[in-house]
Design a protein around this nucleic acid. Structure first.
Lengths: 154, 154
DNA sequence: ATACATTGTGGGTAGTTGTGGGTAATAATC
DNA sequence: GATTATTACCCACAACTACCCACAATGTAT
């Protein structure tokens, strides 16, 4: 089955082990192109979660960042904040990646972890925090969602 | 018979088996173009039912979502809510797809399932819930239907 | 009306996937 | 340099999923 490559959808409930490892769902691993060499870049998300990019996709982001002039203070600050917590990880023979303690703290991860496909990247959430985020957005966004939904035909 | 491809109409009453599989009506399978590789994307409907898209149609949606920048909180939230429950499934040699327990719960499916063609997608309903939805809409919509009917030539 | 093909339903089996933990190699600390 | 902590690699089990075969009911053609 040749679907879109390096593309992720769906939600999975997995667990962090004592060593801070999480499984990458088999469906996601199988969708990875070979040039990624079983590797992802993990970094802080803009929400309180961990973002996981295929290295190939991440390289494109790096290229964009490279174009931003360091003369601007805003640019420097933006580049720093996106790159600062990023590291490359390769999954082991069981399909797991090791998260850094820094990122685990940031996303407030306990034993449970929700893994969510976000098209071009993956998010790792503390289920409780995601619920809270869902609630918060539900009230605000329903009308704005309608507007977006009008642009994209479901 | 060469009707419109990837297009679905009609209602079928099928059953879920113990493993959570449903048959896709033969008429729907035969209408699928080959580039779908016998596969659909299943996800939450906006009503309490399951939406089933031919992968080709879904890929167009994904491409739209990919264009939305993750810098906007609204966009992140929108992408997450659309993609979160979506997964690709391929039907087996008997023409069945396996539903996820998540979606079965959401649509409150028991043994009976109503499968309804919705032109560019398919809906899977709990018959009881569909009756209820029918009742609820009957009262409200008849006048609004008239308005829509003026835009679309039947 | 009969024979044949197709379609829907059920279940068994083998392979895959998630999870836990053990051991060796590397790095950090005193 | 010795000891401890951390990281990477390997193996093992249990749960789940995908694949296969079988049968019954329905529809179609001769």
């Amino acid at each position: 089955m040749t679907l879109n490559q390096n593309t992720f959808t769906g939600e999975f409930s997995y667990s962090l082990d004592a060593k801070g490892r999480v499984n990458i769902p088999a469906k996601f691993r199988n969708g990875l192109t070979d040039d990624n060499e079983q590797s992802f870049v993990i970094t802080r998300g803009m929400d309180p979660c961990i973002w996981v990019y295929p290295v190939i996709i991440w390289q494109a982001i790096e290229d964009e960042l490279r174009k931003l002039s360091s003369l601007s203070r805003l640019n420097r600050s933006f580049v720093r904040s996106t790159v600062r917590y990023a590291s490359t990880v390769q999954y082991d023979k069981q399909g797991r990646i090791a998260l850094t303690s820094n990122l685990i703290d940031y996303a407030e991860l306990g034993k449970e972890a929700l893994i969510i496909g976000m098209v071009n990247k993956i998010e790792i959430w503390n289920p409780t925090l995601l619920d809270a985020a869902d609630q918060a957005s539900k009230e605000i966004e329903s009308s704005e969602f309608d507007e977006l939904a009008n642009q994209i035909i479901l």
